[in-house]
Structure formats: C-alpha cells, structure tokens
C-alpha cells in the first residue's frame, strides 16, 4: 500500500465548475512529486484537500492507511500534526519572532497552556534550534518574522513545517514570491531536506524548469484533471502543450537543460 493514496478526489466550488475532477494519485514513501499546471488548474486545491484545509466534495485521501476524509475534528487535528505545509507567501505570523513561528509547528503536540505561555518542552526547543541551524537562521532566532527577507522567511516556513516531525510535506508554490536565485536556493534546500529524511513531498510549482531541475516525478494538472504522470525527463513539448496549451516549448526545455547542467557543474 502506498504512503498516500488519492482516490477519485473531486472538489466542486460552484454548481458548474469542477476545481478537481476524479484525481487519483499514489505517492510512495520518500517520493517527491512536482505538481505542475497553469493557474487555476487546481494545484493548490489538490494539496489543500489532502489535509482538509479545503474539504473535498467526493473521493478518499488515504494517508498511512487511514482515510482522512472521514475523520472527526479531533482525529483530523491529530493527523494534521504529521503533515507539514509550506506556503507561497510564507504564511508566517509576521509579528511573532522566528522562534515562535518555528515552535508553532509543535502546536498540535503541546497543551494550550504551554503554547500560551511560550513554555515549550526542552526537546521541542532544542529541535527548533537544530532546524534553524539547518536552514541557516541561527543568528535570527529572536527577530520578528517581518524583519526578514523573502528567502529567510521561507526558510522559517520550512523550519516550522519540519518542527512538526512530519511524515509528509505539502508545499504550495514555495518560490513564487522569490527572485530566481533565492528560488533555486530554496528549492535546493527543500530537495536536500527531503532526501536527508527520505521525506515524501508534493510540491506545487508553476516554473517548469525549476520542477525539471529538482524533482524526478512530475504530475501535470489541467482543468482539475491529471493529464500527465511521469518522469521529469519525459516532459516533451507535446506533453507541455497538453498541460499548458499551445506554445513554442522547444526553447524552454533546451534552456532548462542547460541551466541544470550549469548547476551541476557549479556543485
């Protein structure tokens, strides 16, 4: 059995518009999947349906052998603690410190009084320091989140998700708000971390080249339906036309390949 199984997941916001239409997808342990597709294809809706920030209209989401769709509020909270999420605009609590933001990843594990008094268990604090060291922010522990740059904020977002000790990462357009260089650094950090911990992840990404460069398996979504599921190397102009529509894709793919080569040489 796969670690995560989506069966015929459908999401309908309005009467005649399906955001997701019968999406079926399996993700194995340790696998990183890049979800590509045009704006409005349902990428965000799909990952939000997994931890039920958005309720799916139909279908089942089986995570570690349990169907999340049927869970009660209490059971859902418990299940959410093992699913980390990283957001496009970082979604940090701007007025709280970096440390509070990272520790908020532990909210599902600690009682209210501990979170209210900011008295987290010693092992949580220690883990938070270790994670901040891993993402390179050990010098910024007591800064307010709104005092950091975009790249630094996304690193805090990553540390918060990892503080949950998740078994799955849901990553929604992690680089959309970042410049190209920072975007690459963040993508590299995410893929390294997933590899270190053999952590499975679903990454929504609209930049085809970034996806090809950092992710092995690609799922293409169009109008809420899966139209491609294969290796990044199989992304041909014909496939990209199927996902995004008619365009001259030959240059995109070529350029992407060269950049990937340059990256490898630099490394």
């Amino acid at each position: 059995m796969s670690m995560l199984e989506l069966r015929a997941v459908t999401k309908q916001y309005t009467a005649n518009d399906l955001a997701l239409n019968n999406v079926t997808l399996n993700i194995e342990g340790g696998e990183v999947v890049g979800l590509i597709g045009p704006s409005g294809a349902g990428k965000s809706t799909l990952i939000r349906c997994i931890n039920r920030l958005t309720e799916p209209t139909k279908g089942s989401v089986t995570f570690q052998g349990r169907d999340l769709v049927g869970l009660s509020r209490r059971e859902l909270r418990k299940a959410r603690t093992s699913i980390g999420m990283i957001f496009q605009e970082y979604a940090l609590i701007e007025r709280l410190t970096v440390m509070e933001n990272v520790l908020s990843g532990r909210l599902g594990y600690v009682p209210f009084w501990r979170s209210f008094l900011r008295k987290y268990p010693p092992q949580d604090v220690q883990r938070a320091y270790a994670l901040l060291d891993r993402v390179g922010l050990l010098d910024h522990v007591n800064k307010r989140a709104d005092a950091l740059s975009g790249g630094q904020r996304q690193r805090v977002g990553i540390a918060r998700a990892l503080a949950q000790e998740p078994d799955l990462l849901l990553i929604d357009e992690p680089t959309a708000a970042l410049d190209p260089r920072t975007a690459r650094q963040i993508m590299r950090l995410i893929s390294e971390i997933c590899e270190e911990r053999s952590l499975p992840a679903i990454i929504n990404i609209h930049d085809v080249n970034l996806a090809r460069q950092f992710v092995k398996r690609i799922v293409g979504l169009r109008h809420g339906e899966v139209v491609f599921d294969g290796l990044a190397s199989e992304l041909t102009p014909a496939v990209l036309t199927e996902i995004y529509g008619e365009e001259d894709w030959s240059k995109t793919i070529q350029k992407g390949g060269e950049e990937a080569d340059a990256e490898n040489e630099a490394a």
């Binding site: 939000r48 603690t81 957001f87 909210l107 209210f116």
Partner: peptide, 25 residues
C-alpha cells in the same frame, strides 16, 4: 487567512489558532 490556514495545518486547536494566528494580527 493564509496565516490562519498555516497554523491550522499544524494540527493546532481553535484556541491555539486564536492565540497564534488571529490575536497577533
């Protein structure tokens, strides 16, 4: 709302969401 979603996604209870995502804002 995204900040609220982010705290909710960690498995926080509704009082914790209030304390961490809403009150600071």
């Amino acid at each position: 709302k995204t900040q609220v979603a982010a705290v909710t996604a960690t498995g926080a209870s509704s009082v914790q969401v209030l304390d961490y995502a809403i009150i600071p804002q």
